[in-house]
């Protein structure tokens, strides 16, 4: 356990350093974008948290499926930890996107494909966690939770490609396989976005790790209570 916490502290130090570098790049290094002005700096937060929310659901689906095959509790803990982290990243993805859209588009929200599929992903996270919280423990709960996670994982590539498939107000992808190689996001813009994405990925791993450790302690507590015959807490 202590080894895990030492590694977690190291991860926190690396994440803090990367975050400090990210903030310096966002506010002091990257030039102001000519069309949107300072408001464009929001995208260095919005894009990485959106990436984190999509990464999380991939982990949830993969860990759930592996758990169903191996019945190893570690994978179940990973699924829960990444789902809860995904909710936080998903909520921030929606909020930061709305705050960016208000001055740039003149509205907080539109019903276009990218935004709607992102909202669906957030609801899938909520559904996953609520389902796990209220459904009785057992194999059936794990199977159904895995299906919800898998649906979320299918939604992720749809979110990523939505702006390119259904061209509307949302800017198209600027990183990844569907990004335009000649897009304005080159040099300083691209570099800042990459560092920010790396920093938020590390933050995602740190938070999921902490949540995993809590889940491990919760399971240990259940085991002890089972040994001494006390009622088990529900989780």
């Amino acid at each position: 356990m202590s080894g895990i916490f030492r590694a977690s502290n190291l991860l926190l130090i690396i994440t803090t350093g990367l975050m400090a570098l990210t903030l310096w790049m966002i506010f002091f290094w990257v030039p102001t974008e000519s069309n949107q002005g300072n408001i464009q700096r929001i995208l260095y937060i919005h894009v990485p948290v959106a990436w984190g929310s999509m990464l999380a659901i991939m982990f949830v689906a993969a860990a759930s499926i592996i758990y169903l095959r191996t019945k190893n509790e570690v994978w179940d803990r990973i699924a829960v930890a990444t789902a809860e982290t995904g909710v936080v990243f998903g909520a921030l993805m929606l909020i930061t996107g709305m705050v960016w859209a208000r001055p740039v588009w003149g509205v907080w929200w539109t019903g276009e494909a990218k935004l709607t599929t992102a909202l669906i992903l957030f609801f899938i996270y909520i559904a996953y966690l609520m389902f796990r919280a209220y459904f009785p423990p057992g194999a059936q709960r794990q199977r159904l939770a895995a299906i919800i996670g898998f649906i979320g994982a299918v939604d992720s590539p749809i979110i990523y490609y939505a702006a390119n498939l259904w061209s509307q107000a949302h800017p198209p992808a600027v990183i990844g396989p569907s990004a335009d190689g000649d897009s304005a996001f080159s040099s300083e813009f691209g570099m800042t976005l990459m560092v920010a994405t790396l920093a938020f990925t590390m933050l995602f791993i740190y938070i999921a790790w902490e949540r995993f450790a809590i889940r491990e302690t919760e399971d240990a507590l259940v085991e002890i209570k089972r040994t001494i015959g006390e009622p088990e807490p529900a989780h």
Partner: peptide
């Protein structure tokens, strides 16, 4: 002639860090 919109920028960073 862009507006600075610093209020929105502040809001995003404040919400993100407060949340985390």
């Amino acid at each position: 002639k862009l507006e600075t919109n610093l209020g929105f920028l502040f809001a995003v960073f404040a919400i993100t860090w407060a949340g985390f």
